[in-house]
Design a protein around this nucleic acid. Structure first.
Length: 842
DNA sequence: AGCACGCCGACT
DNA sequence: GTCGGCGTGCTC
């Protein structure tokens, strides 16, 4: 094996393939599939990943360059993850390098740093083309530069340009004449965190002996050494702590090192975001009969060490988490590892605590609130085998375990499992595929499974994944699901109540206040945004580059574009008509909070929304306040609906249940049903019975009716009817293609061309152009139409929706047509984005 | 993505 | 006459 195929870190079409490199003899032991390497590429050095190893070919090695360096002791990727990356690039039509990069913490995104050292002093005279320059004496500047470099041996180009600003030309000339040499090296974005650690350099006996003969003027050093000897059993110790405890200076400690009695070394420390927090250990709970049946099914599969997917449909409070914990335990007993995926907003300390309490420091945690450094350290904890369980959001599906036995995806219906940036992968699909590669089991858990998963489980179709359905219809503690009242807000209005609180919700809140119980209020904010409108002329503040309305941010008192980041001062008067009647609309939680204060004087409201939870740890702080009963009401958006478990919450109110129902999204009903069911599950989870009040303007809608009777099956039945009639998932799959360009007419032509080509190629392959026949391979293309955001960052956007069904590879057709189009549109300003199985249609 | 190579306008 | 514009093409 003397040659490696490397995917280099250049996300472009032309470089989206492996490049061949020779492996120098001295690097051979370090180069493996999955290694991160620095390779010469063109005239620079790039980071890349080894995807395969090969014997050196007989010929054609002429243009092959050698790998320059191996960047890690342990390859950050494994052959398994490389293979998963290959699958991802096909499935999601993304670049190979994007797929690989998405598996790693950003700390490992290295970039080349340029270093300068002295070249051959004779070199210049050898160069005949520059002969004239060679005999010319160097300029003063050049001599200074050479002196600067010569003194230091090697400097980074950055340092050099800092020392000699505006000397770029001179440096370049010196390199050109061989007087200076340049080389590039990959430098990680992040350094490992280290600390100065003190250790004895001699045996403790010798150290003790030396104490006797210490010079009297080195009393401080003597003290330090005595202290170190006292701490003998805990060495090495941190220099910082040593200095603090004894009140000595670093020089004193260094004196000891100079005497050869101790050593001071930089050792690596691991950042632990949960350091210093205590977790009360927990024991496995006794399982109910229902739980036992489910547990046995999963364990059977685990014991066979074979791949299998389970869809665990359990009502809120049915004890899914205990199933997770016990199956993980089984998996660990087999010396295998487990991944627990949780939606980002449900990844609360409460959630993490349950896993830490059961499995202690064998648990690694990964979520977006960690700093790059913390995430890198948690990642290494997994890679180096110091953790066997990871609890994390979407990207934790790529946890670098080598003996994966189980992947659990909690709340599997959550749309946040779909990544909205390239690579636009769905963690559920990645999980199922990764598990099938490694013989691991998958548990998809939810009280309201996605229609895709549920339908797949019911139909057991072959071309899809076919999970085994496991049901847990009762609550583990035996308490009943809460009573749900639906209030018709139109009726309220007719009877003169113009408040956002219906009379029954008002009464319900009052009684909780009297009884000292707690209330959770949900404002379903999807479909609203905080925009600025003039009530005199109707002017709405919009982004000058994106054709969408600007969002008002109270904290900074400015208007921002949610999409491109454009910001401007919030106006005092209408910029159009000068009226002062310009108002901030739709803010939601703030307005609800104000109204609550008016209706219930003295009420303590804890508001949780983007404004109050941006700071690190604030989310957690607010929840703790609520748990400590420092608030009567927890008011918030989506984030109050997820997995929270407070014993004294007996009332859940939904301010407007149907605000999302009118959105042009075929999943609107499903999302509404899921949200209502989730939030209703927050009430009465313990000894106190719960009550739920749902306010709605369309109480007759099936998603609201079925949510109020906790009837998932009826909802699925109704919803599937709609999906089937309108040809939507799970009865077909979707690919959303968005084309964008600065010039509208050109874009429209290109988009039409794209749609026509797809249609033509699809026909040519014998696929039906309509989805009406359910037994055939079919592909239908809708559009092009203007995107829901018709202009973004000064680029117009058109989209095509492809609906398809069958065993053929529609993704690769779309990809190849898109690529051809991009080639022929020789102006590279055309952008085409492909979203396979999109979640967001707007 | 960079970065160099290569063919046409405003300047000492 | 040259410096330099950024259009096209390549990177093992």
């Amino acid at each position: 094996m003397e040659m490696a195929r490397v995917i280099v870190d250049v996300p472009s079409k032309d470089t989206d393939r492996p490049f061949d490199y020779l492996i120098p003899e001295e690097l051979r032991p370090w180069v493996e599939v999955g290694s991160r390497v620095g390779v010469p590429f063109g005239h620079r050095t790039l980071q890349g990943f080894v995807v395969s190893l090969h014997p050196r070919p007989e010929m054609d090695t002429a243009k092959m360059k050698p790998i320059q360096e191996v960047l890690d002791v342990m390859p950050p990727l494994s052959p398994e993850l490389i293979e998963l990356g290959e699958w991802m690039k096909e499935r999601y039509a993304c670049r190979y390098i994007s797929a690989l990069q998405s598996m790693l913490p950003t700390a490992l995104k290295g970039k080349a740093e340029r270093y300068i050292s002295l070249g051959d002093p004779e070199a210049s005279s050898m160069d005949e083309s520059d002969g004239l320059f060679a005999i010319l004496p160097e300029s003063e500047l050049e001599r200074d530069i050479l002196g600067f470099v010569g003194q230091r041996g090697e400097v980074s180009l950055q340092q050099l340009t800092r020392a000699f600003p505006d000397a770029a030309a001179a440096i370049k000339a010196l390199i050109g004449r061989g007087k200076l040499r340049e080389h590039q090296q990959i430098k990680d974005k992040l350094q490992k965190k280290t600390m100065k650690a003190v250790e004895l350099a001699v045996s403790s006996e010798e150290a003790r002996l030396s104490l006797a003969s210490f010079p009297t003027k080195a009393q401080r050093q003597k003290e330090v050494l005595q202290y170190i000897l006292e701490m003998e059993d805990f060495l090495p110790i941190s220099q910082k702590e040593l200095l603090q405890t004894l009140g000595v200076s670093a020089g004193t400690v260094k004196g000891l090192a100079d005497k050869g009695l101790i050593t001071i070394e930089d050792i690596e420390v691991f950042r632990d975001p949960y350091r210093g927090r205590h977790f009360t250990p927990s024991e496995p709970l006794a399982l109910t009969l229902e739980q036992q049946a489910v547990y046995r099914s999963i364990v059977r599969k685990l014991d066979e060490r074979e791949h299998g997917v389970f869809l665990l449909h359990g009502v809120t409070g049915s004890g899914k988490t205990e199933i997770y914990l016990q199956t993980i335990q089984r998996c660990m007993d087999q010396d295998r590892q487990a991944i627990v995926l949780v939606p980002e907003i449900a990844l609360t300390p409460q959630m993490v605590e349950r896993f830490k309490a059961r499995f202690g420091d064998r648990v690694a945690v990964m979520h977006s609130r960690l700093s790059d450094g913390e995430r890198y350290d948690e990642w290494r904890k997994i890679r180096e085998g110091r953790a066997s369980v990871v609890v994390g959001a979407r990207s934790a599906v790529f946890a670098p375990f080598d003996r994966l036995g189980l992947i659990i995806m909690d709340e599997e219906h959550e749309s946040s499992y779909k990544q909205e940036e390239t690579p636009k992968y769905h963690a559920r699909d990645v999980a199922v595929h990764r598990a099938s590669m490694t013989g691991a089991a998958v548990i998809l858990g939810s009280a309201t499974p996605s229609l895709e998963s549920y339908h797949a489980a019911k139909s057991q179709s072959q071309d899809d994944f076919a999970p085994q359905l496991l049901e847990m219809p009762s609550r583990a503690l035996g308490n009943k699901l809460p009573e749900v009242h639906v209030v018709d807000m139109r009726e309220e209005l007719r009877e003169g109540n113009r408040s956002m609180f219906s009379r029954s919700l008002h009464t319900a809140i009052s009684s909780r206040l009297e009884r000292g119980e707690q209330t959770v209020l949900l404002l379903n904010r999807r479909g609203y945004s905080t925009f600025v409108m003039c009530r005199s002329c109707g002017y709405v503040a919009g982004c000058p580059e994106c054709d969408i309305s600007l969002t008002y941010h109270q904290k900074s008192n400015n208007l921002r574009c949610h999409y491109c980041g454009y910001a401007e001062q919030a106006p005092e008067v209408c910029p159009d008509c000068g009226s002062e009647h310009i108002r901030y609309f739709g803010t939601g939680t703030q307005r609800v909070e104000e109204e609550l204060a008016k209706l219930f004087p003295g009420i303590r409201v804890i508001r949780m929304d983007v404004d109050t939870t941006t700071e690190k740890g604030s989310h957690e702080k607010l929840l703790k306040q609520f748990r400590d009963k420092k608030g009567d009401v927890l008011l918030g958006t989506q984030m109050v609906a997820k997995g929270l478990d407070f014993p004294d919450v007996t009332l859940v109110g939904v301010i407007t249940a149907d605000s999302a129902l009118n959105l042009p999204d075929f999943r609107a009903a499903e999302k509404t049903f899921q949200l209502l069911t989730q939030v209703a599950g927050r009430a009465g989870r313990h000894h106190l019975p719960g009550e739920v009040v749902i306010q709605s303007y369309t109480p007759e809608h099936y998603s609201i009716i079925h949510a109020s009777s906790h009837d998932y099956l009826s909802f699925v039945k109704d919803e599937l009817k709609h999906r089937k009639a309108l040809h939507y998932p799970p009865y077909c799959r979707l690919i959303l293609v968005t084309l964008s360009h600065e010039q509208l007419p050109l874009l429209v032509r290109t988009a039409e061309n794209f749609a026509a080509t797809i249609k033509y190629e699809s026909d040519r392959r014998g696929w039906f152009g309509s989805l009406d026949r359910f037994d055939a391979s079919a592909l239908d293309i809708l559009g092009p139409v203007a995107s829901p955001i018709p202009r973004l960052k000064n680029r117009y956007r058109f989209q095509c929706m492809i609906k398809w069904r069958g065993t053929m590879d529609a993704v690769s057709l779309v990809r190849s047509v898109a690529e051809k189009l991009q080639d022929s549109a020789r102006d590279s300003k055309l952008q085409i984005s492909i979203d396979v199985d999109p979640q967001m249609l707007m």
